[in-house]
Amino acid sequence: MEHPYLFLTSVFGLFGLEEWAAHHPHVTYMWFAMIILIVFGWLAGKSVSLVPKTAQNVFEVVISGMEEFVVSITGEEGRKSYPLLISIFLFVLVGNLMGLVPSFYPPTASVNTTMALALIAVGWSHVVGVWHHGFKYIKHFLGPVPLMIPLFLPIELIAHTARVLSLTFRLFGNMMGHELVVLILLMLGGMFLAPLPVMAMGVFVALVQAFVFFLLSTMYIAGAIEEAH
C-alpha cells in the first residue's frame, strides 16, 4: 500500500529526485533518523561537565542504566559491545516512533532496514565470539560429541540463520502491520479519528519492539561470550 503523502519525498522533489525518493522512502527516512540521533548526541555531548545539568542528567541516567543492564547479562566482557547495542536500540526506537508522525514513514517498516540491522547484530556477535575464544569458537557449532559433528554442524548453522530471520521479521512485521492498520483505518474512518487508538498502542509497540531487538542482540552476544556447551 502506498503512502498518500510523504514529507521527505516532496523535499527531495525540490532537487528533482522525487522518483528516486518515492521508491526508497526507507532510505530517506533512515537518513532522517540518523540526523535526529546525531543532533541529539551532539546536544548531549556539547557541554559535558562533571556535575551534570538538566539535559546531561537525563542522558546519563538512560545511557548508564542501560549499560548496567547489558553488563548484567553479558558480564564484564560485553561492555565493549555496548555502544553498538545502544545505537541499535536508539535507532530502532526513533525509527519506530517516526511511524506515528503524519506524513512520515518508519524506516523499520521496510524489510531492507531490519535485515541490515539484524545482520549487523548477529554478525557482530560472531565477531565477539572469535575475539574471545579465537579458533576455539568453532566448538560452539560442533556439539558435545566429536562423532556427531556432521549432524550438529548443519543444525547449528540453521539455528543461527533462524536468529537473523527472526530478528528481521519480528521488527518488520510489527511495524509494517501497524503502518498498514493505521493507513486502512485512516482511509475508512479518518474523519472520525478511527486510527487514534491504534496509534496510541503504536507508542507501546514501538518501545517494546525496540527493546526486544536490543535485548535479543545482547543475548546473542552473551551466548557468543560464554563457554561452549
Binding site: 543492564f69 548484567s72 547479562i73 540453521i158 539455528a159 533462524a162 519480528r170 526486544v212
Partner: peptide
C-alpha cells in the same frame, strides 16, 4: 537486578516459538 533477569528470560522464551518455525522453513 531481579527485573533485568526476568526480562532476559522473557526475551529468550518469547523468541522460542518463532525460531522453531523459522528453523523448519530454513531447512
Amino acid at each position: 537486578k531481579e527485573t533485568g533477569k526476568n526480562l532476559r528470560e522473557l526475551g529468550y522464551f518469547a523468541s522460542l516459538g518463532i525460531s522453531v518455525a523459522l528453523s523448519i522453513f530454513i531447512g
